[in-house]
Design a protein around this nucleic acid. Structure first.
Lengths: 249, 249
DNA sequence: ATTGGCACAATGGTCCAACCAATTTAAGTG
DNA sequence: CACTTAAATTGGTTGGACCATTGTGCCAAT
């Protein structure tokens, strides 16, 4: 018996698994209730009872949300919303190979080079006056921290870059570069033994800000590239030091 | 009563959960056994018995891997490896609000713009003769597919770009842009109703290849940007069409 | 009034045993 | 050999129980 030719319009039947149904109901609940990040969700037992599914199923669904970073579970306390959730939200997990060798660290910088430059361009094109004031505030905080401790402060430095990404109007920049940043600082606070890592990048933060404030995309791109270039130089210098030490021993 | 100022060195303690232990053991098993994507993992019951944990715990761990796209579960058949897994892997769930509208699609292209240009530069700087022959092979396959069906073929097009990323010497490009690509094509094959999407980008594939083959990073960057620009134009055209249709109805 | 200790309830984490549903495999049947 | 059918396999779900951690309120000591 031959199969009939079926119109290709017929797509695979959408068989929503039980977890998906739970998650969908939970989205509606969160939006309907107007829950915001930090708020507590109903307990697993309550959810299971109301949704007429077993607690195990609820747990599997929440485990998925946890893996996506949408929710955080604290034993003895409850389950808390970690990020805003709406129905039309696309989640794509990104898995990156990481390492602490010179090449892997340089790879993260190559990604940053492309993305930070692009983000600077977009920020210069789109930033509102309030956005620019916001970036300047972060810049000043970073500069104050720099003078106070005579060196780069990782937190304030990151806050400044974050401000630029946020004003680019594209949330993906922040998420991807945050991953690069984490890979870079995952193992060492002083990568490869360089103590004043990032020191040379300091002046370019202000020049980058000036370019963005002047709504000059070309200049913003150039300054962002200079900034990354100094970090790459630091990294190469650290690799050279490491090589020298190995030769001695 | 005022709180004392605590040294910022104090970080939350690391409490490894049971799932993590299972996942770690599973990583070692996969690498030790040399399993490759497509291979079948042991059944949940077997894993539970060997790891001395309950099947529930194994299931929670596998659910997490499934959410990350590392593994695929088929009821009645088994659990299959979907992607290579190693110990040093960083998982970043990317979240893009409102997946199908014009702005979200454009956001993925903004990321591609920065990264494809950078990858083209690196490829032009580093590609060996064999690499260039490999890219050319993919280019020819794409061109043949184009002429055969009088339009862009998504698979061959992607293979060509993939070849460029791989010869850039940085595996991060492939991973990140693949995520952008998936976000873009998740819902519709013909974004926003544009039927010959990507048609205009065709000639720039060869000009990009020529620049890389000539070891000209500057030209390679320029051609990559032109290529993305045509896709962005297609997208804008699609958005305009959509707007017109909405006005009519 | 503040602090510290304590018991108790609430909540997520784990376990077990059974059954359901889809798939695969093998036996049976013409 | 082709097809059907039954059984075994495997992931999906359920209910109930218990453990580990956290939050809360009470109470005594200071």
């Amino acid at each position: 018996m031959k199969h009939l030719v079926i119109s290709p319009i017929l797509a695979p039947v959408h068989t929503p698994s039980r977890d998906d149904a739970v998650l969908l109901a939970l989205v509606d609940f969160v939006t309907g209730e107007g829950l915001r990040p930090g708020d507590r969700l109903p307990t697993e037992r309550v959810l299971a009872e109301h949704l007429k599914v077993s607690r195990t199923t609820v747990r599997e669904a929440l485990t998925r949300w946890q893996e996506l970073g949408l929710v955080e579970r604290r034993q003895g306390s409850g389950t808390y919303l970690k990020s805003a959730v709406t129905r039309n939200m696309l989640h794509v997990p990104l898995t990156l190979p990481s390492g602490n060798d010179f090449n892997s660290l340089m790879h993260t910088l190559e990604i940053r080079r492309g993305l930070e430059a692009e983000a600077a361009v977009l920020s210069a094109e789109r930033a509102s006056d309030e956005d620019i004031a916001f970036i300047e505030q972060k810049l000043i905080q970073m500069e104050e921290a720099f003078h106070a401790r005579h060196g780069m402060s990782a937190d304030e430095d990151w806050d400044f870059h974050l401000a630029v990404f946020r004003t680019s109007g594209n949330p993906l920049f922040e998420q991807i570069i945050a991953a690069m940043y984490e890979m870079f600082h995952r193992f060492w606070e002083h990568p490869l033994g360089v103590r004043d890592f990032g020191h040379a990048s300091f002046p370019y933060h202000r020049t980058l800000f000036n370019a963005i404030a002047a709504r000059d995309p070309v200049a913003a791109r150039a300054e962002a590239l200079k900034l990354i270039a100094t970090v790459e130089d630091d990294l190469r210098r650290g690799a050279a030091n490491l090589k020298k030490q190995n030769k001695k021993s």
